[in-house]
Design a protein around this nucleic acid. Sequence first.
DNA 1: GAGTGGTCTAGACCACGAC
DNA 2: TCGTGGTCTAGACCACTCA
Lengths: 256, 256
Amino acid sequence: MPQADSDQPAYVRVADTLRREIRAGILGVGTLLPSEVNIAKAMNVSRNSVRPALDILRREGLVRTEVGRGTFVRPPVPARRISMNQYREDAATAARTTYPPPPAAADSTLAPHLPTVELTEVPADAGLADLFRIPEGTPLQRRYVIHRVNGTPVQVTTSYYLLDMVQGTWVATPESEPSPGGAIGHLWSLDVQVKKVRPVVTSRPPTTDEAAVLRTERDVLAITRQMLDGSGRVVEVAREIVISSAGVELEYEIDL
Amino acid sequence: MPQADSDQPAYVRVADTLRREIRAGILGVGTLLPSEVNIAKAMNVSRNSVRPALDILRREGLVRTEVGRGTFVRPPVPARRISMNQYREDAATAARTTYPPPPAAADSTLAPHLPTVELTEVPADAGLADLFRIPEGTPLQRRYVIHRVNGTPVQVTTSYYLLDMVQGTWVATPESEPSPGGAIGHLWSLDVQVKKVRPVVTSRPPTTDEAAVLRTERDVLAITRQMLDGSGRVVEVAREIVISSAGVELEYEIDL
DNA sequence: GAGTGGTCTAGACCACGAC
DNA sequence: TCGTGGTCTAGACCACTCA
């Protein structure tokens, strides 16, 4: 073991102490931590040495701070594994679904899982034109969707269809979210078969908006995705799918 | 445009100003930023308001700080795209290579790209036993490899083979890194054909060591990977492949 | 109104790098 | 020796939440 406490900066000692107490369960899940002033008193440091310690724990996803209330121990995030086999399952779901699907019964247990949807029409900017391999300015439908699990936003997706393709169809209505088979289901209902999905994964600090919506100080995973049909035409672009990286795993599977 | 400067916290204003000057090229790549004290004077704030601003820019990967020297504008990281088609190319390379390959000629232009390699023997801990689907304690060969591009460490990989499989072979020697066809090449040389690769991607703050080696304050991408042969046996585990997320894109391709 | 975290100031001392 | 960033202190005011 490295000789712990001494000669370490004060804020690291504070962070280590608090982290140890959280890990040991002394500060249980949901517990309100002592206030910054009280931590400072208890550990004989100034409040300005407590704050960077809490910054560290926030970035590690161990605690969440609410202004005016205090800092709380976060529940350990269950490892939410997102499998890219999802796309194969989506394709299978699409193939056996009649679109548009009957409206879901008003099941209140589903409410906390319902997404927020905003559909708008926009011209393709340079980046989208490149991803779609179409001229800049081509009309697109933009879909901004906030996905929730148990009421907690976990994913913010901004995706695009060619406006020509979806205009006047069920896909152009907010009722098309959530859709059986996801985007692949949408396209299936338009007689477009997705044959290739190309996701590109990066990680970056969240924008201010994303941090607020996803309630995270951690970096986010940002996925840019293209969907292609059998002729190689790009039929959907997601730029970007933003996921709080806390407790999320993206699983791929490559057959050789 | 959102009304920029006013009513924003001072440190955000400072960060925005510096970011704008970097983006505009006023502070060119490699430039030494004004010292914290001088930025404070110039913007009429205290040094303690400049520091969080620089924290933001560091986390965005825009600047790098060296104690005693100052803060410098980092070169824009070229988007290094890592394609998972690499595995298919590796398989093709392995199939046409005779192992062990002839030692590379002493080509000094390659030196800055040579990896650091440490091979050790370890018993499987609980996590590795689970990933390999073998009993805890099974002897493994552990490979710790630091990959470099132009002398800069970009990736730290810790991977494992079953010791029984590699002991006494070329794969058990440091000369086996770098290998044509990577891990797939190693296994091919042992008459083991990799049929499936299963990478799981997460993002997390770097450990102190990783931050030092990869010279980054950004979160890192951490990939845990299994390689399986035709019978479904796990023949290699990487836990973890750690990549500085700055400017890195992981590209996958899924055929439906 | 009392307590919380968010922000800010004006100082200070230190280890380190460059000269 | 001097300037740099790293750390730390002791204050202060604010907006916010909650009783």
